[in-house]
Design a protein around this nucleic acid. Structure first.
Length: 562
RNA sequence: GCACCUGUGGUGAAAUGGAUAUCACAACGGUCUUCGGAACCGUUAUUCUAGGUUCGAAUCCUGGCAGGUGCACCA
């Protein structure tokens, strides 16, 4: 039986003994400070009014009633503050905890709260022809962490990206490429595509005479009609996907499937036409969705424009159809920047009328923007920096900082760790102020701090092994560090149910700090005291496992040396 | 104008309605003959504002102030 259930039973029987009707659920939580015990409950305070007693007196009565049938896992119970009942766990409880961590190793922290559920996570959706920027990195960091959290939930997880491969903007770029290179264009450099996009946008604004040609290109691309532009388009798409995948591999992501906007657009267009009139309405040559009057916060939007092409809204309707038809998710999570909240309110409101469960099964996660503050890196990176440029700049900082020579790969994993950490430490949806000289530090609250602690433990274990001292848990005083370690699975669970990677970040920092204090206060590997060394190495090893698993959930590598 | 989101030390952030609001950076002061100093220990300093709900509010409700974002053929 889990410890919380155990406590719950104890409190319920105490309440029964006092003739008090127990509430449906009794809340147990960890006090902020370990000196207040390992668990506490507010049950006395919440019942005080109902039974017309002073909360503190009531707490004491409950405490007295519980004390009669304590299990050996509980050392003592106290009443504190305005009426909290605090539980202090005993050695037998903790003595089970560390060996369990050591045994489960990479599986420690996995739960079964979502077993048998199918969960789809869509993230990192980029626009072909536009480069992979730091904005995409934010999206990716959050998305990838959600993927991994969901994998720890026991769910069957599918990953998907929705690349934007078709739009008027892309037609403009193709126009430029076609004009410059003709149909024997060889796509071998993504920068050429990015430049063509920028140039095309400019040309289109400056020169109205090309509008007709661009529209024709767009029509042919939408219709997938054999043509020189389609040929170029396919080449570019292939190149971009390869580039996209190489960047994502570096960041630790993989996608099971892609659904392209061109595909979703056609599907969406059909659905909308089928429901017009009805859910959708014709207006000024376009097809629009007008929400009910009571839904003031939802705007009217065009789904099919007057040229007959599906807009972003229609594409997302098509995407919903394809997602649910192909993958059958119980929960469909998608990650975008927060500016798109109103857009998805419209899409889901309309979508709900097409198929009811689309809306109720969808979860929209958002991220903010990355603002740059520091002088040094801002000037080096310019406006909206490319992910690769930022990665390179941060890797250089890491290298400068390093006291010994590591491989470029290690530098990069530290740089990625630092960047991902600063994204995931905050609640998703907020803008992030990114000052490479402070927020992206390598000290204190940082990815490298966690990685460093992990590497330090690895080298301790190695040192022990050299002296033939191996982790082996003995009984001993229970350190504050140990009192934190067993909580990892609860943290993972709260991160899963709350879609909250930041809970993992906060917890890992606490663990790393607790370990480093432990390290500072104790000689861990000590040849003159083998038993104690074995015991401390066991605790260290358990800490290392938790750091590693936790960093995995954040999509951050845990190097053994750095 | 309408709608949505956000206001936490000097700075950047955390906190299922709970105890003395947590952490880091910066500043100041220490540890150190390093089991890896990207470390450890300490000091200073915080919930925009006015009400309300509650045993109990950074959190929930109402008003105000400040900032951000979105509002029909871009994605």
């Amino acid at each position: 039986m889990s410890i919380v259930k155990n406590l719950d039973t104890l409190v319920r029987s105490a309440l029964a003994e006092l003739d008090i009707l127990a509430p449906e659920s009794i809340v147990f939580e960890h006090p902020a400070d370990l000196s207040h015990g390992d668990f506490s409950t507010n049950v006395a305070m919440s019942l005080a009014k109902q039974v017309q007693q002073n909360p503190k007196d009531l707490a004491e009565k409950i405490q007295f009633a519980i004390s009669k049938n304590l299990s050996q896992e509980i050392e003592k119970i106290t009443v504190a503050g305005p009426g909290f009942i605090n539980f202090y766990l005993a050695k037998p409880f903790f003595q089970k905890a560390i060996p369990e961590i050591l045994e489960k190793e990479n599986d420690f922290g996995k739960t079964n709260i979502l077993t048998d559920k199918k969960i789809l996570v869509e993230h990192s959706s980029l626009n072909l022809f536009k480069p992979f920027t730091v904005g995409h990195m934010m999206n990716n960091a959050i998305g990838e962490s959600l993927v991994r959290l969901m994998q720890f939930s026991g769910a069957n997880v599918a990953t998907m990206a929705f690349p934007s491969d078709i739009s008027l903007g892309i037609a403009k770029a193709i126009f430029v490429l076609l004009e410059k290179y003709g149909s024997d264009f060889i796509a071998d450099d993504v920068k050429i595509l990015g430049n063509a996009y920028v140039e095309g946008t400019q040309r289109y604004t400056d020169d109205e005479s090309i509008h007709i040609q661009v529209k024709e290109i767009a029509d042919n691309l939408y219709a997938k009609k054999e043509s020189p532009e389609l040929e170029i388009f396919e080449k570019c798409k292939k190149l971009n996907i390869a580039y996209f995948e190489s960047v994502l591999q570096k960041l630790g992501s993989h996608f099971d499937t892609y659904i392209y906007e061109s595909e979703a657009g056609n599907v969406g267009k059909e659905i909308i036409q089928k429901n017009t009139p009805g859910i959708f309405t014709e207006s000024q040559g376009a097809i629009v969705y007008i929400p009910e009057e009571s839904k003031k916060h939802i705007n009217t939007a065009v789904f099919i424009n007057s040229q007959g092409n599906p807009t972003y809204e229609a594409k997302d309707i098509g995407l919903l159809q394809l997602k649910f038809e192909r993958i059958h998710p119980d929960v469909s999570i998608f990650v975008t920047d927060h500016e798109q909240i109103p857009h998805f309110q419209i899409v889901l409101d309309a979508g709900e009328k097409i198929q009811k469960d689309w809306s109720e099964k969808s979860v929209h996660m958002t991220h903010g923007r990355m603002n740059f503050k520091g002088q040094k890196m801002s000037s080096r990176l310019g406006g909206v920096p490319l992910a690769e440029d930022m990665l390179q700049a941060v890797s250089e900082e890491v290298k400068e900082r390093s006291t010994h020579n590591d491989s470029a790969e290690v530098y990069e994993s530290i740089a990625i760790g630092a960047i991902k950490f600063s994204i995931l430490r905050a609640k998703p949806g907020q803008n992030i102020n990114f000052d490479p000289e402070t927020s992206l530090s390598f000290e204190g609250d940082s990815g490298p701090y966690l990685q460093y602690t992990h590497a330090r433990i690895c080298s301790l274990i190695e040192k022990g092994a050299g002296l033939n001292i191996h982790p082996n848990y003995h009984t001993g005083e229970i350190s504050d560090l140990e009192k934190m370690l067993y909580r990892f699975p609860e943290i993972v669970e709260s991160a899963i149910t709350g879609y909250a990677p930041q809970h993992v970040v906060t917890y890992l920092l606490e663990v790393a700090r607790a370990f480093n204090s432990f390290y500072g206060a104790n000689q861990i590997v000590d040849v003159s005291n083998k038993d104690v060394s074995q015991h401390r190495l066991a605790v260290a090893r358990a800490t290392q496992i938790i750091l590693k698993n936790g960093l995995y959930l954040l999509g951050i590598k845990a190097p053994e040396k750095m």
